[in-house]
């Protein structure tokens, strides 16, 4: 029972990071209607920028994260303006190829600036705590709590503010958004900004328990794609719940089946869920 509880806790930690990455991905998908493969590179940049702010500039962990969120958010905006906006009327395959191009470019850039070595991110929350038989580091608890806070803030922004609702409206009907006077260019930039910031916070939270390296976004982004497909492309609740489903499946699978096959569970889940529910768990219903 204790092992089970421990694995549920670990699942929550891993699922939190996945959900944050998948949320950014699904928000952009809602606006662009293309899978942004470069999102994994934004995640990696988030890790490196936080690390650099802490080690080179000696900034405190949270301040480094804030700066990283702003920089990666702006990188997202730049990506939208320079690459995706000019391709808005091009065939969809070109966006996808461009996204892969950005991913490769940013990885090469990271390797050039920071080298190919694996680096460790220090954290002020390395203490090990034991509560009711559960043993964990404070960093893991921090990941869970921060993710919940970020999700609540995002939810309030999207649901309770005009600008946030405009993002949702635009993802549901772009022409309808034009008709009510929403500036769709600004909304697209804002969405990329939020998406980049989410990737940066996810990477900064998870890096102290993983490592920072140029390819750190690969597996995470692949799994984030699995999550948004499982959850229903463009669905926000789908991204959150999908992230946690995957987190639990991985940590329980690693304990009770085999740790060696940990990374394959995501894809087994994908096959199973798509077999029974091809549109994903939270497929968008309704019609206009």
């Amino acid at each position: 029972m204790e092992i089970f509880a421990q694995q549920i806790f670990n699942g929550l930690t891993v699922g939190s990071v996945y959900s944050l990455v998948a949320l950014g991905l699904t928000l952009v998908y809602g606006i662009l209607h293309i899978p942004n493969f470069a999102h994994g590179a934004l995640y990696m940049m988030g890790g490196y920028i936080t690390l650099t702010m802490m080690t080179k500039f000696g900034l405190y962990y949270w301040i480094a994260i804030m700066i990283s969120m702003v920089i990666v958010g702006l990188m997202g905006v730049l990506m939208e303006r320079l690459i995706f906006y000019p391709l808005r009327d091009a065939p969809p395959i070109q966006d996808k190829i461009a996204a892969i191009g950005i991913l490769l470019f940013l990885e090469a850039f990271a390797q050039f600036v920071w080298g190919a070595d694996y680096q460790t991110m220090p954290t002020p929350y390395g203490q090990v705590v034991s509560v009711m038989g559960l043993t964990f580091t404070m960093q893991r608890l921090l990941i869970i709590i921060s993710t919940v806070v970020v999700m609540i803030l995002l939810f309030l922004f999207l649901k309770k503010t005009f600008i946030g609702s405009a993002i949702i409206a635009m993802s549901q009907n772009r022409e309808g958004a034009h008709l009510v006077g929403i500036n769709t260019n600004k909304m697209a930039m804002l969405t990329f900004m939020i998406s980049g910031a989410l990737a940066a916070i996810a990477a900064s939270l998870s890096s102290p328990i993983n490592l920072v390296f140029p390819g750190m976004g690969h597996l995470v982004i692949l799994k984030a794609f699995v999550i948004i497909i499982i959850g229903g492309m463009g669905s926000i609740p789908g991204a959150i719940i999908g992230g946690y489903i995957l987190g639990f499946a991985e940590s329980l699978g690693a304990t009770y089946i085999s740790n060696d096959y940990k990374d394959i569970f995501a894809f087994i889940l994908l096959v199973l869920i798509l077999t029974f529910k091809p549109t994903g768990l939270f497929a968008k219903g309704g019609h206009s």
Partner: peptide, 9 residues
């Protein structure tokens, strides 16, 4: 034409 509503709002 086609109303262009936001169907899931």
């Amino acid at each position: 034409e086609g109303r262009k509503l936001f169907p899931r709002m």
